[in-house]
Write a protein that binds this DNA or RNA. Sequence first.
DNA 1: TTAGGGTTAG
Length: 534
Amino acid sequence: MSSSLVTTTPTHRQHPPSIDRLTFLVDKSKSIKHLLQTHALLLRHGLHHHPILNFKLQRSYASLGRLDYTVALFQRTHNPSVFFWTSIIHSHAQCGLHDLALMYYTQMLTNGVEPNCFTFSAVMKTCPLRPGKALHSQTIKLGFDSDLYVRTGLVDVYARAGDVVSARQLFDTMPEKSLVSLTAMITCYAKRGEVEEARVLFDGMEERDVENAGGEIKPNELTVLSLLSACGQLGALESGRWLHSYIENNGIQVNAHVGTALIDMYSKCGSLEDARLVFDMINEKDVVAWNSMIVGYAMHGFSRDALQLFHEMCRLSCQPTDITFIGVLSACAYAGLVSEGRAFFSSMKDEYGIEPKIEHYGCMVNLLSRAGQLEEAYEFVKNMKIDPDPVLWGTLLGACRLHGNITLGEEIAEFLLGQNLANSGTFILLSNIYAAAGNWDGVARVRTLMKHSGIQKEPGCSSIEVDNKVHEFLAGDRRSPRSKEIYMMIKEMNQWLKAHGYTPQIDTVLHDLGERERSNPLKFIVRNLLLLSG
DNA sequence: TTAGGGTTAG
């Protein structure tokens, strides 16, 4: 790789450009071609070993995605200082090459070079490869842990590991907060689904608490992103709308990233119209924005809109990704477009060069089995180039339940048990297949088997937001202080449903429900929903 | 001459 690097014999001119001028030229080289020309100029003047220029060259190659050139230059650097080591660690960490970044860090220590604050900031990007705690003690030992950037990095390390207690403790004892540490904390809460906690921190930015040297800390594009994502996951439409108006009223730019998070939030909360309004307003849509809207339509059964958007995207020369095809194939599955789905599946690789992943095979199984082509779906799985995973088997078993195909369901379940691939979902699905066929002995056998193997099904959970508070419900849940009113309302809704001619489909529901529960349609809907979500 | 936070998925 180093062979392609510029090699020119130095020739000394009378008036070489100043170091400042050359530094400026390196910084301004925004393409590889341009940078190579500047590099050649440095070589001509024999200035490529100048510490600042050499350093800048290494950084620029890395930022243009040519880590190979950076490494080649680094290897030729005589006695690299802590600046160079930190930079090579940072470049690798930035590209996700965590093990290599760590290797350079170890080499640096072996060479007797003392790390500094910047080194720790770079190494912290390699977590969770390197346990946060070990790194934390090292920063304390060297007295760097109160440095703003190091502390922010530590908060982020613990936050990303989901250790909200340690992250919060480090955050609370920060001598001065930074927007980045706040965003890291908010993201941590949001990822855990603790939207209220995240909101408290977010609101705190507005009001009081946050003390920093530069005065008030204002949320920016990045701060709202994970919060929006959490609203979507919890179906918290009110919070999501509030955040949207906050964005509009506080000069936060609705760029492609924020726009995508808004599209995702609205579509997950079921408001496709709002999602589309945001989508249409994004000026420079990237592929993630297109994907988000296509997937949003597909998941809600708006297959025509999803496919229309896909064609529009291709017309505008936006290259689809593997996620685009998740949306496209799901859209076909919802609309029963079997031959179109097959064609899209083939075109993924043939036309777009995208290798189908397990998810795409899952979409195809879904597509075929929804269309009643269960045997074809099973054949498809057996002939797959990659190993099926539990989710895919679950899709197939779910299809067996839907079509009441006990024989195939049993065959698959036995295969999974034999291969030690069965999970709680396998048992529940098998049990449901028996229930669907009225085979209560089969149901009882599965229940006994589950008991003996100590397998328990995690209860499914659903949530709803009322007055900015997210409420969670499990089947038969009576934890809410207002559960009496809730169940009264369920009763009322049941009566309404019955009066309007709703007949519950009770055959697929688990055996352990009493007759009274079985005749309660809404409970069945809820229960089935919970089973599906579990 | 060096540093930290984010969005789409069967």
